[in-house]
Design a protein around this nucleic acid. Sequence first.
DNA 1: ACGCTAATAATAACTTATTATCAATAAGCA
DNA 2: TGCTTATTGATAATAAGTTATTATTAGCGT
Lengths: 126, 126
Amino acid sequence: MERNTRQRDAILSVISEAGRPLSTQEVLLAGQAVVPSLSIATVYRTLKDLAAEGWILPVKLPGEADRYEMTRLGDHYHFKCSSCSKVFDIHEKLKKTTLLAPRNFVIEKYDLILYGRCNECVPKHK
Amino acid sequence: MERNTRQRDAILSVISEAGRPLSTQEVLLAGQAVVPSLSIATVYRTLKDLAAEGWILPVKLPGEADRYEMTRLGDHYHFKCSSCSKVFDIHEKLKKTTLLAPRNFVIEKYDLILYGRCNECVPKHK
DNA sequence: ACGCTAATAATAACTTATTATCAATAAGCA
DNA sequence: TGCTTATTGATAATAAGTTATTATTAGCGT
């Protein structure tokens, strides 16, 4: 990146302010609220650049396209709402002692994904 | 399914005897050891049928095509070797008390994926 | 404000996994 | 064994996500 463009600024601030990982479509929609002409090609291109520069990281869930979130958020895991499909961060760490692998296997990292209903989607009564 | 074919028998026994989730390519290769003419189309078709009949289940990892394993294995999670790319079963359960979600979020299920080196790929010395 | 050229917008092209098509093959009953 | 037709094998078609192309737009140094 050699020039600061409105598109790039919009995309980074959209992700920074989301508070949860965003899909490319979510980035496109939120970004178009700032720069109406924003195109999906620019979203993909900019997400790739921002990731290469270390600002954002891809969040990978099984069977789904990458979402992105700020790198500075550090280690955590994710919760996906089975109703609204939004993904949320959970800033807890598992105690390593709770992770078990077969003898002689070396664990380098893990991904924990919870599925359920977020606060917006849990029926308030009943 | 209305006929028992050598292809179908081969595919099911290959998965049953693998002891770990197999990709479609792994099923094809192992199946061709039994029925040399086995084609990838038959592998996909049969895997879908076997899953619909409840014999096998898809194992989904982020960014990767489905693998399959026997349904009878029950609840467990997976370990993927970052060296040989094989996926292994881990038959342990996390204590539910170790799973935390934000207030008002309801956890329905979870997926834990470990990444690292399997016993075959860990350097024996050093 | 001007000019150079990086970045964008629109869309075509591509990728990888999976599914559909259809002539040839083979399961299993008479 | 022969017949009927479900299943297979080979490959074309499809699908969804992502990347490439290119004329146009706009950042930014002068």
